[in-house]
Amino acid sequence: MKLFELFISLAFVNNVVLSKFYAICPLMGVSKKPKNALNMGLAVIFVIVIASIVTWLLYYYVLVPLDIIYMDLITFILVIASLVQFLEMLLKKTSPEVYKAMGVYLPLITTNCAVLGVALDNITAGYNLIEAIVAGFAVSFGFLAVIYIFALIRERLDYSDVPEAFRGAPIALISAGIMACAICGLAGLI
């Protein structure tokens, strides 16, 4: 039950994009088409879950025993970058279809601050490994849900009669703000 509450809390109530404002760059950049948004979201789930496991293990089995926990930020950045390179190489060799589906979005995840944010939050919140995995999945699922819904909204906005000054990024940011207000309604659910 605790894990379910953690999932609901991180995926919806404390959504990584709309309440913490992480990963705004991919939200704005890769939400022009729903298909691209879906691919990006799936790639983010893939990377965040694996990054959560790897960074948690490194923190508690390397940084803490060596008493170098002040190296956590630089370690997580390099580990996430390494992980993305490794996953890209692995997919090239083993799953061309998945590699094709993720396309250019896989290397772009290196710069997605939600990945680093989740890794750091897992440590700050003191989660155990299972909780860290659930947290990673919940956060990335929340990201997928928001970016996909946002892409559907933006697709409809393209056909809407939006005033000239608001076309493009301005109306997208206003829509994101309204979505953030809407998700505030879930506060207190958990």
């Binding site: 060596l66 170098i68 370690t75 390099l78 390494s82 190489m89 090239k92």
Partner: peptide
């Protein structure tokens, strides 16, 4: 540790 993780990153980057 810093040298090690940098080396791992550059190795994976080149291999990729």
């Amino acid at each position: 540790w810093f040298v090690l993780i940098c080396a791992i990153y550059f190795t994976l980057y080149i291999l990729n």
